[in-house]
Structure formats: C-alpha cells, structure tokens
Design a binder for these strands. Structure first.
Lengths: 351, 351
DNA sequence: CTGTTAGCGCATTCAC
DNA sequence: GTGAATGCGCTAACAG
C-alpha cells in the first residue's frame, strides 16, 4: 500500500494531501472522531482531542473544503458581482465585504459582469452552479423581474446599491442618496447660493433620481424655484462633468454653484471652471458626491457627500449571512447614512 | 422515497438542486452518459446526447462544482491575496485577473491579507485548504524563504508585483520599474532640468529600489551628479509626498523638478508647490508613477509613467494556468513594459 | 464519549 | 456507444 507515506508523499488521490483518514489512523481513532474535533464538538474527551490535534498539526492537515461543501451542502463561498466601472468605488465596497466575510470564515468569489447581461448565460446560472452559497450583486443591470426570478429559484442574494428602483421584498442595501443630496444643497443654500446647477448621473438610476429629489427638496424647502435649465445629465465619468459644467457656465446667467452627482463629474466641473478663468470657490462653488479617493486630491479639495462604501459591503454581507442562516429577513431594505464633508471647493456666494 | 419530487422540490440533500442522477433518470440513460455529454466527450451518439441535453435544459441543471471538485481534485478557483492599500491600484490588477480567469472558466477568490502576516495562520494554510487550485499573491509581505516554503509544499502560485526582491525560481510578474523611472527622468532632463528631486517609496521595496536605480541611471547617463539631499523617502500615500516635496522646496537651492515614485505622492507634491505659490509646470515640473485614476484629474494633469496593471493581472493568470497544467514554467520572471505619459505637469526648466 | 455506516454529486475505470 | 460500480474527503445519523 502507499499508506505509510501519506504524510510525506502524495497520498491516495489526485490532491496529494493528508486526509482526515490519515489523521484518524495516525491518532488511532475513527474518522468520525477527527471530524468531531475539527468541528469543535463538545463530545470528545480532552485526551483524544489532544491526540488528534497533535497529529493534525504534525501533518499540517486542513480540511478539504470541496469535500466538506459536498457533504454539508454549503460551500462557504459567496459570489460578488461587479460591473467594472468606477474602480475605487467598487474597490471600497469589495474591501468591506471581503473583510466581513472573512470574519465569518467565508470567502468572496469575484464575478465581473462585463456586459453580459444580454448573453445566453444568465446571472442565475453563473452564480448558482454550486460554486457559491449566495451572492452580493452590486449595481445590477438586471430588472426587478429578473431578480425576482432569481429569488424565486431559492438562491439567496442581496443587492448592493441597486441601479434601478427595486421591488420591495428584494433585499438591498443602499446609501441615503436623497438625504445626502439634500444636505449638499442645503450647504450651498446656506452659503447664500440661489442659482445652483445640478449635474445628474444617468437618468433612471435610483441613485441619480434620489439625488435629484434631494436637490429639489432642499430648493423647495428654501423657497427657491427650481430652474430646469440648470440641470444637466452626466454619466458619472469626468468628461461628462466637464462638458455639463461647461454648458452651465456658458449660460447668460450662469449658476454660482454646482452640485455634481459624483466626485468624478465634480472634478470635470472644476476643470471647466478653470478653463474659463473662474476660481473655485471664489467665483464658483462645487460640491460632489461619494467622497472618493480623489476628492481630497483635486484642486481645490472637494466638498462632497460621503457614502459609507465599505460599510455598505459589510452590511450586505450581514444581510446575506442572515439569509443563508434561513432567517427570512423581512425588513431587508437597508439605507446607510451619508455625510457632508466640507472641504475647500465651497464658499459664500459673492454677489 | 423522495425521489419523485427531485425536480421540483428540495431533493435529497440540503442543496435541493437537480442532480446528474435526476437527468439520467429523466433521459432514460445512466449517470455516466450524462457525465459524458456534460464533458463533451465524443463517445456519445447524437440521439442520446440530444435527449440528455433536452432534459438538462428543461430542468435548468448545472453541475455541482463542489462535487466535481471533489471528484476531479480541482476546484476551478484561484485565490488572489491583496493587502488593502492603494485601492485603484489593486482594483486594476484585480480586474485584469478576474477577466482572464473567466475566460478559463475559473473563478477568483479574494483573500484580503489585512496584516495577518504574523498571525498564527500562515498564508499557506489559508490558501491551500482545498478551496483553491492555486493563487496569485499580490505585493506579498512574505519573505523569499516563506514563499519558497509554500512552493515546496507543491501549492502553485505566482507573485504579482513582488514587494521585495525575490529568489529566482519563484514565478513573478512585475512592471519595468527601472525603465519607467529612467524614462521619467530622461524626460525631465530633456526639458533642461538639472536639479531633480526624487520622492521614493518605502526603502527596501523592489519597486522603490528599481525606480531609484532608474532615476540614478538616467542622471548618470546625462552626466548629472546625483545629489543625495534631493532624495526623500515617502510611503506611497499623499501626505508623505506633501511633506517630502515641502522639505525639498524649502531647500536653499530647491529642485526645479520632482520625480515622485507614485501618483499619490506626486499629488502631494503638487499641493506643496501650490502652498508655496509655485506654479506647476512653470516654476516646478512634477512627474509621478502609476498613471492612476487620479493622474489626469489633479491640477495640472500629471505627467506620469503608466504601469500596465490590468495586464499584470492577466499575465499572472496565464502564468498560473500554465503551472496548474503541470507545465514547469522555467522562465517565470515576467517584466511588463511601462510607458511615459506626458500631460501638463512638466515643462522646460526656466532658469 | 466513540466507532460504524451511509451518502453528498460527480467522474471514471471497467465490462458489455 | 453505454451502463454498473467505485471512490473523492468529509459529515451525520445511529449504535454501542
């Protein structure tokens, strides 16, 4: 037999690793007992436990996750899908989720959804092919119906930062876009600005619409009439902010402040102002959204609304874990607070 | 028995999914045959293949990866460890690796190595507990010896962007730091700068030292005597660049140009210049490294050296795949080219 | 407290 | 071309 070399040599199968059986034999107990100590079961005598642990350590044994997964019916892996956009935005969420998962002894399987929405393979198939116990779906392109279907299939998942408004009943975590936008606008209003431009994200996105609502709510509360000509649509990328701000500033009666729906576009706005010889914040105030990595780095450092991105990832995990534990999470719509971060891109209106 | 409901209802085990056995029964063939069509084996008649495929589709069957993994001895998962620093830097590599893996039908398991280097659980244990077939280790804290040990254990891995110089024989992918730094310095020299400051990364890191070498090589080639007083150590974060540049600019005979070892520190340098009333690039030229997301966003847009980050991730994957296929990769030290990207933070010296 | 016995879902020899 | 039998490494009843 090849048994005697199991410790040193490639053992029985293809894996070539020490198995629970080896440990059992070495420790002079049954596999069941080894399994017990592995899983910290109470019903094992201290002596045998020690004996087993000794062999485990001596041979550097670790349990084979595939085997355990097959046996238990749980892989200990959760998928996390991300559309590859806005690197530092998703990286932050990723970091939070990954950390939280780690504490649960779980692992994160990254699935990038390039633009495969309309390909033959559905999200569902890709996720639930036995590789993962559940998933966190970031900024999904999928419609409410499609997600409903996924849900109906029994696959546990939670949406992080829903792109479109979602049916109630679909677990989701998002930031308080409306409140954040309101705070940003209030800040501008408080500085005396009355003509405030707004560069939105893609229309139809939940985040975009909520921020618009917050913007308008703030204006309304201050008794300022919203001027439709002061609103431009962007796509969350720098150039769109640049263009949008440019067209705003070239108006006969340009705004004295601009609220951009994210920091990238705010950075674009900063550039547009600079190109026109406008000084920020003296001649123009600019507020962003996200508090991305770049916010403090641009010139001048950007006043913005912080989204708790890592926290968002962590929260998604904890929701998912609850789902995985079979707890039917009812109040599964979590909204995380946002916070205004005042830096140097805003100042009192000077007219 | 509970067999009859297997298709609709939670079947036998905990998973509740359609199994290969269900398909076999439904199609009136054996599991072996189903397995054959699943794996695109040639020895199956077209008719039976069709029959099987029909049932597979009709029931939305997908193979259970855990079961396959256990059977085949391969999980189809590779781990990717990342120290959580410099978000967009690792995000870029991540994106490349993830994409490449996807094309190989493999998945990426993210493992964040907070600062667990000195914890009881070794990288080895964490990675090879049967969860993954191999790993890509980014910017490892582990020493060459530790990595050697991992290698000796037979666990396949490749290092992406080695932090410290690595033994030959350890597969690694990195960027051409030296050449990139040389190109950056050549550029400055070409603009007439002679007093050039350099803000380094953490001393001892491979990237840092290589860039210093490139910097010095360029100077030497131009016959410029290197001035040790013009070199400052940073840590790749903005504040360190800010401080370092400040101290450089406060010199009696300040440099007319600064080459920072990454874009973050270059951004810090930009700020330091601004605080002193220096205009970039008129009074001071600044060059960064990385071509990070922020490079084009700061004021002025940064001249920098582009690292092919996504490509780095992809290359790491292809190396790893070769290792997994049992091909002993010999020439396993890959260095990817870097490229100077000239923007607006550099101009001819004006003295 | 501990050992025996069955599977988990799939791939893989072998026969037929 | 196809089926029956076996095992991958582990957990989970069920006995004792």
């Amino acid at each position: 037999m090849m048994r005697r070399m199991a410790t040193e040599q490639r053992g029985t199968g293809t894996t070539g690793r020490v198995t629970i059986r080896d440990i059992a034999r070495l420790a002079g107990v049954s596999v069941a007992t080894v399994s017990r100590v592995l899983n910290d079961r109470p019903d094992v005598s201290p002596e045998t436990r020690d004996a087993v642990m000794r062999e485990i350590r001596a041979n550097g044994f670790t349990t084979n996750r595939s085997a355990r997964a097959l046996s238990v019916g749980r892989t200990g892996l959760v998928g996390l899908t991300v559309p590859i956009i806005r690197a530092d935005y998703f990286a932050a969420i990723l970091a939070g989720a990954s950390e939280a998962l780690y504490e649960q002894e779980m692992r994160l399987v990254l699935c990038t959804t390039l633009h495969e929405h309309d390909r033959e393979v559905s999200l569902l198939e890709r996720l639930m092919d036995g590789a993962t116990d559940g998933a966190i779906i970031m900024l999904p392109e999928e419609s409410s119906e499609e997600l409903r279907a996924l849900q109906a299939s029994g696959y546990p998942f939670v949406v992080a930062d829903p792109r479109k408004p979602l049916d109630h009943g679909i677990p989701a975590v998002s930031a308080a876009h409306l409140a954040g936008a309101k705070a940003a606008t209030d800040h501008l209003l408080g500085l005396g600005h009355r003509r405030i431009g707004h560069i939105t994200g893609p229309r139809g996105w939940a985040a975009t619409e909520d921020r618009i609502s917050g913007f308008q709510a703030s204006l309304a509360a201050a008794g300022v009439l919203p001027d439709p000509r002061l609103v431009r649509e962007g796509d969350f990328e720098v150039p769109s902010g640049h263009v949008a701000a440019g067209s705003l500033l070239d108006l006969d009666d340009p705004p004295t402040a601009i609220f951009a729906s994210n920091d990238n576009m705010a950075a674009g706005a900063l550039r547009a102002a600079r190109e026109r010889g406008l000084r920020v914040p003296d001649d123009l105030s600019v507020v962003g959204f996200d508090d991305a990595e770049i916010a403090p780095m641009v010139t001048p450092p950007l006043t913005t609304v912080r989204q708790p991105l890592a926290e968002l990832g962590r929260t998604a995990v904890s929701l998912l874990v609850r789902l995985l534990d079979g707890q039917r999470v009812d109040a599964s719509r979590v909204e995380l607070g946002t916070q205004l971060v005042v830096r140097e891109s805003t100042a009192p209106a000077n007219s």
